[in-house]
Nucleic acid binder design. Structure first.
Length: 421
RNA sequence: GUGACUGUAGUUCAAUGGUUAGAACCCUGGGUUGUGGUCCCAGUAAUGGGGGUUCGAGUCCCCUCAGUCACUCCA
């Protein structure tokens, strides 16, 4: 059927063949993060618009042009969440988790919304797995979160990826770097693209992230934030790289790496893959330290670090495994008998299904029902015809071997199936 | 948001501007209402939508919608 109503642009239906893979991934995520002491937090799908404006930065693209913002009936401005860190931080403060012994380790999974161009690996509704650790400035915590991300990706089955890291400095050293950068580029401004000219005033660091090749050539001899780290940031950085080495997490230093959200300080990182299945995308996970965010929301000074993985992108890198089906298919001349037997099997903890007629109550032929069982890949067929019914028996048929079946008293069926499997 | 390309059964693909838009797979039924995988036969089902040009449009033009790719940016 070709109906006129389709899923909105940038959204998609997850069909059964894929949903099973999602379930496995979610299971793996919970297991992996809980094993590192993280606990799940579930947060609202929409928030007060102000939350994202205050944290991500008025100048960021996310806030500028990508938010789904609407007014409710009381004319409050609300926004479908474009990212998770800000709301995790809000919840942390709202629930006074700053009174707990740090670090407070939280993770979350769910849908996020950004109104931007749609293409492979980029959707308007997408899923992220994220974690946040609040209350510790230890670079070892940064290293731990990166190691956890790598562990998760590996266990999920991602073959090839690279961890890129950088440090953006803190409120002490970043202003000095910002000025040095502006100084260095002042004379070249006329040769740079329009976006970079805007960024020059608003957020000079973002210039390094420019995709215009001619611009990048102008940046070759420009210092990176790493060159201007203060003593504290420098020792943080050294401790981080040392710890990653000790944890055997391979990484590459990317001196040009900056992030799109304004709240990052010190450590930033991205996990990238060149796999063509990602389309034009390469980042599958990204995060960093945001030591000023909690304070900017009105909380106490609280260092924190976190990351997010794009789950759609991750799934693009994985093969779709065959779906699993029920173990037993109940074949009968009477649908109501088949339903009763299937129900009792299910109550006994054995998965079972049967063939329902499209109309009426008349069952299809044995041939059709067995074809169905075969198509579903069921291990067993339980056949109940008039002969079996008269003797209170069923024929238990092993679908893996043609012609192999035994008679079993109907009451013993669950027990027998458990013995055989 | 901007640009390029592409839209034909559920799916993958055919069809010089010219008969009734074909095939394979899927699905349904039958061969074979008491035994599945193979095989044989039959059936259901499509030009994304709307205008225009033409004797005639799946094919050419315009608009629109959708997808893909690229840019911007990001998970």
């Amino acid at each position: 059927m070709n109906i006129s109503i389709k899923p909105p642009r940038g959204t998609r239906d997850v069909l059964p063949a894929e949903s099973e893979q999602w379930q496995k991934l979610e299971e793996l995520a919970r297991k992996t993060l809980k094993s590192a002491g993280y606990k799940e937090i579930r947060l609202p799908i929409f928030e007060q618009t102000e939350l994202f404006c205050r944290t991500a930065g008025e100048g960021s693209d996310v806030v500028n042009k990508e938010m789904y913002t609407f007014a409710d009936k009381a004319d409050r401005s609300l926004t479908l969440r474009p990212e998770g860190t800000a709301q995790a931080a809000r919840a942390y403060l709202n629930s006074s988790m700053d009174r707990l012994r740090p670090p407070t380790k939280l993770f979350y999974m769910g849908q996020y919304f950004r109104n931007e161009a749609v293409q492979t690996g980029r959707y308007r509704q997408f899923n992220q797995l994220g974690l946040e650790a609040f209350g510790s400035a230890s670079p070892l915590l940064d290293a731990e979160t990166i190691a956890i991300a790598c562990d998760f990706l590996k266990k999920a089955g991602v073959a090839e990826f690279e961890v890129q890291i950088n440090s953006l400095g803190c409120s002490t050293c970043r202003p000095a770097y910002r000025e040095a950068l502006k100084e260095k580029l002042r004379d070249r401004l006329s040769t740079l693209c329009k976006d970079c000219c805007d960024r020059y005033e608003r957020n000079p660091l973002r210039m390094l992230d420019c995709k215009v090749e001619a611009d990048q050539e102008q940046f070759i001899d420009v210092p990176g934030p790493l060159d201007y780290l203060c003593a504290d940031c420098e020792s943080q950085w050294e401790a981080l790289t040392l710890a990653l080495g000790q944890l055997r997490v391979p990484f590459a230093v990317n001196r040009r790496l900056v992030r799109g959200l304004d709240y990052y300080t010190r450590t930033v990182f991205e996990i990238v893959s060149q796999d063509s299945r990602l389309g034009a995308q390469s980042t599958i996970a990204a995060g960093g330290r945001y030591d000023n965010l909690i304070e900017s929301l009105g909380g106490p000074p609280t260092p924190a670090v976190g990351w997010a993985v794009g789950l759609e992108r991750l799934l693009l890198l994985l093969e779709t495994p065959p779906t699993t089906n029920v173990d037993v298919f109940v074949v009968s001349t009477d649908v109501d008998v088949a339903l009763q037997v299937a129900t009792s099997l299910r109550q006994a903890g054995i998965s079972a299904d049967l063939d329902f007629p499209v109309t009426g109550t008349k069952s299809r032929s044995f041939t059709k029902q067995l074809q169905e069982a075969n198509k579903l890949g069921c291990r067993w067929a339980v056949i109940i015809g008039e002969n079996e019914l008269a003797k209170n028996e069923v024929a238990l048929k092993d679908m893996r071997i043609k012609g192999l079946q035994i008679s079993v008293p109907i009451a013993d069926l669950p027990k027998k199936l458990r013995e055989l499997t």
